[in-house]
Nucleic acid binder design. Structure first.
Lengths: 207, 207
DNA sequence: TAGATTGTTAATCGATTAACAATC
DNA sequence: TAGATTGTTAATCGATTAACAATC
């Protein structure tokens, strides 16, 4: 176990390991190895061992890793042993799909509020949550102490919305808007613009 | 300009540069510099110059880059000077949001088919496209020569669907299912599971 | 015990940055 | 011309892999 704070790229792989471990646990498997995990994920076994060893000695020589124990450890590292409140901004098709997706609550992410600027959307219920006007966003996010937001507005308003969210205490943004957000260092952003992902892949296709 | 094939990580940044350049062009700006672009994107100017120089000499000393010319060059590199047909698999909330998202057609990605296994979904129209039964997927994808697919099925069937798509000629998959897909080297996958992205960020939040 | 697999070290590989001559 | 900015080189930094002693 090292002293240095682990690189972000390693942190980013932990949720992938966790997902694979959960799948194995669902199949009632109790033990796995860095080799088996690597096979499943297309990652070298050495990398998996090195990544995990940054956080502790979770395995046993000759045996491998006890799955439920490793799941618990990774959940602890990633701060997943609690529920996280989340706000959605934008109640268009993307915002609605997010609000209706069951995977969030299954993993402890609880949608607490949805905001939109469209008066026809405000007051509507989506998956049991009433859409509020975006003017209330800052106040409501602060009141509820929400730290996580999913941004599903048009690109044109995304930066302004992000600024307001951060001002209100949000510290992590899942960004669906097709724009690079400018945020302070202490705020994390993960972007999910599908168009840029498609454009990355067309490079490799026959023109 | 180098001879070696450029690293994938560089290819992945080109769509980001393109997006920023398009935004500048929309504002009627005609010329930019690696410094300005870097400021906007939170990337060093050296990296931008190095990335672009892998593909050609697109700039002018003392002046910078002519925006419309650079856009054209990057579009060419990424094979974006044509339309790409796309299939969506899964007509749930995510599949519907994808089918309704105008950003795809704006960037030359044309949704040609939507598939689902649910008989209640089959026959429905989503954004003008009739949902077909998933049993027809392989045949239809092959018939239309579709190379790009967006996978929005449950995790439990995602691998099987991917196998069928690849068998039918698909070479790039935008994967919304929360699973790591196993695919041959010649097939590209970009994954967009929002839960793993959130879990990456919670590491940095107060527990 | 014998076989398996970890955690770790050192070597390799790759990506980013700093610096600057070239030149528009 | 003088100032600005590119493209490129070399240096630095960081990530991955190979290999193996330790040990379950």
């Amino acid at each position: 176990m090292t002293q240095k704070t682990p690189p972000d790229i390693v942190i980013g792989r932990l949720p992938i390991y966790l997902r694979a471990l959960n799948a194995l646990a669902d199949q009632k498997q109790e033990v796995t190895s860095s080799y088996e995990l690597g096979e499943r994920l297309g990652i070298s076994s050495a990398q998996i061992r090195k990544d995990l060893s940054q956080f502790g000695d979770f395995g046993k020589q000759g045996t491998g890793y006890h799955i439920s124990y490793l799941i618990e450890q990774i959940r602890h590292i990633l701060h997943l042993n609690r529920k996280w409140d989340v706000a959605i901004i934008g109640a268009g098709h993307v915002g609605q799909a997010l609000a209706n997706y069951g995977g969030f609550v299954d993993h402890g992410f609880v949608i607490r509020a949805i905001f939109d600027v469209d008066p026809r959307k405000v007051g509507q219920q989506i998956n049991g949550i009433t859409v509020q006007h975006q003017d209330k966003m800052g106040e409501e996010v602060r009141r509820q102490g929400i730290k996580l937001a999913m941004l599903a507005t048009p690109a044109s308003s995304a930066q302004e919305v992000a600024d307001t969210l951060i001002e209100a205490g949000v510290r992590a943004i899942l960004n669906y808007a097709p724009i690079t957000l400018a945020v302070p260092d202490e705020v994390k952003v993960q972007s999910l613009d599908p168009v840029t992902k498609l454009q990355h892949m067309t490079y490799y296709l026959e023109p």
